[in-house]
């Protein structure tokens, strides 16, 4: 059962997923090129000074990639489901309804995580040619809230898409937007270093929250 669910989900998201993989590779290629170029034109010690003391972010083009990937994946995976109420058929399968919805979103989460881990790993590999561990660790701490925002947006958007009422969708969107916005308050590296565990907890609120709109969908609540 799980195998066929995986296959069904993969059919829905494959093109989006592959595009996101390709996009991340393009972005990383671009970062590598600009780094190599800048280090040839600005001398390396000055470049380090800009990174270390002025907080110059040479991977800033990467900022919204995790968010875009999360949003794209949620759209690809859940919009076809609500289209002509297909999710209703899915939820009639002989599996506990909640289980199925959670399996879907957890599968999505893992595919998103795979994409993120690969892109972070490649970013670190690219950077490790030029910089020592201290700067690599700052990359991890600086990009972590961007990745968390992508996951939060994925959960949040899934929740919004499944919600049957349009007015509620708009209200949820405001909340999710506010939530996602919290991950972009940094103006310097490592600013989330001390609070990452709390922000990690924050993204699981819409994860469990999906269950709420799932029930509303099943009941076909169309209030207001």
């Amino acid at each position: 059962m799980l195998g066929s669910l995986c296959f069904k989900e993969w059919l829905k998201i494959r093109w989006t997923y592959i595009s996101m993989m390709v996009l991340s590779l393009l972005i990383l290629g671009y970062i590598f090129l600009t780094l190599a170029h800048d280090l040839r034109f600005v001398n390396a010690p000055s470049f380090w000074t800009q990174v270390i003391f002025m907080g110059y972010n040479f991977y800033s083009i990467f900022t919204y990639f995790p968010l875009v990937a999360g949003v794209a994946l949620a759209v690809a995976q859940f919009v076809p489901e609500i289209h002509s109420n297909r999710l209703k058929l899915t939820l009639h399968l002989p599996v506990k309804e909640n289980t199925l919805l959670f399996q879907m979103i957890t599968l999505g989460l893992f595919s998103l995580l795979l994409l993120y881990v690969v892109s972070l790993f490649l970013l670190l590999i690219v950077s490790s040619f030029f910089f020592p561990w201290q700067i690599l660790s700052s990359i991890i701490f600086t990009t972590a809230p961007w990745y968390l925002s992508g996951i939060a947006a994925y959960f949040g958007l899934a929740m919004i898409i499944i919600e049957p009422s349009w007015i509620k969708r708009i209200l949820y969107a405001a909340i999710i937007y506010g939530l996602v916005h919290c991950f972009y308050a940094a103006r310097f590296y490592n600013q989330y270093q001390q609070s990452l565990p709390y922000f990690l907890l924050l993204i699981f609120l819409p994860y469990i929250g999906l269950f709420y709109t799932g029930i509303r969908f099943r009941k076909g609540v169309r209030s207001q």
Partner: peptide, 12 residues
Amino acid sequence: SRFLLLIATIMV
């Protein structure tokens, strides 16, 4: 599930 969404809304 609803309680966690309430918490999220209150925080935001």
